[in-house]
Design a protein around this nucleic acid. Structure first.
Lengths: 189, 189
DNA sequence: ACATCTACCTAAATCCTTTAGGCAAAAGTG
DNA sequence: CACTTTTGCCTAAAGGATTTAGGTAGATGT
């Protein structure tokens, strides 16, 4: 009997693809087995359990996101970098809704620390070098931006802005204008 | 045999309580039945299915959130109103993490339109009356604030800011300062 | 007092998760 | 190249969650 050639990486990637198709919370080991045309139990050699699978998908998505972010901000600074980084989040969410959800899956602290999450924060911090912010305001700004990137994209994806004008693209552009302006004129305490 | 006295409302509320205890995604009809000391099938007279239960919890949470928001902004304006509304979101998330997650559960468009969600947007729009924003910038600002409230609180809850300084309370205060400043000096297109 | 409705029940099918133990293909070793 | 080990997939089986169909007893209204 021919082997499917499974390994943890391949299973994780298939899980990510499945998440994009049916939603992260509907990813099941069973469905994955069906797609590989393999018995369910076989997958348990590659993944500890259902939770482990989800964590792996989350880590995978974070890596992808961090890689794209690194690409996007390379050679850019100031507002250009800000927009590029913001667009990475938004574009990723649109292209890969399931993975984007996965990227925000709650990880336990040690796992989170070893994930690409900190790398993403670091990059957000890096683009703030183009603005004149001293600590602790720089940290405050990193967190605020993180919140906006994640929160705005989430609301948009959940369809909240769908049938109302102006369309969401315009709000996105103007919100980034506004954030850029805010970072240039960050208020004193 | 004594009756438990179930009805849809009571089941929904118990579901909300369960969500706060174990997490929204771990709410199951079975666990709820156990808590009511009732057979699982009995709950299916009150709730169509598992999805229906989740939707009901989501709608319930949105109502609670809207009610608190209404209370909080009554008699306030400008920055005071902004902070009050922002704190409603954050405090609700802390007190009721499961419900807060539920409040962002994806609803189909018609259900979403009938939910308390629009009421919350309306209130966000209302507090912007204290700032000099014309359309479409007012709408842009409503969406940006929605994103921040939701996104920041989410990141905070997921533990991202836990073991780093400055502490998250300070970032929250300063972020609201910054947003207030941004709304007062919203950049021209 | 009687009919009806409501709240809950038993039973059963289906699906997902997870573990235990086995066999055969692939990979490393003398 | 034969031989052992590892790896990849298997069958089997138990435990839960979901959902439907159809039944009964307590509560309610006339």
């Amino acid at each position: 009997m021919a082997r499917a050639g499974l390994n943890t990486r391949r299973v994780t990637e298939a899980g990510a693809a499945l998440a994009d198709e049916v939603g992260f919370d509907r990813v099941t080991v069973s469905e994955l087995a069906r797609r590989f045309d393999v018995r369910v139990a076989s997958l348990y050699s590659h993944v500890r359990n259902s939770e482990d699978l989800k964590v792996r998908i989350a880590l995978f998505a974070l890596e992808e996101l961090a890689d794209r972010a690194a690409d996007a901000i390379a050679g850019r600074s100031g507002k250009e970098a800000l927009v590029a980084l913001a667009d990475v989040h938004r574009d990723y969410a649109r292209a890969h809704p399931g993975r984007h959800t996965a990227a925000r899956y709650r990880l336990d602290p040690e796992t989170a620390a070893r994930s690409a999450g900190p790398r993403i924060s670091q990059m957000t911090r890096a683009i703030l070098r183009g603005y004149e912010l001293e600590e602790p305001d720089r940290t405050h700004a990193v967190r605020l931006l993180g919140g906006v990137f994640h929160g705005y994209v989430d609301l948009e994806m959940s369809g909240g802005f769908d049938h109302s004008s102006p369309d969401s693209d315009q709000t996105w552009v103007r919100s980034l204008d506004a954030l850029d302006s805010l970072l240039r004129h960050w208020p004193a305490p």
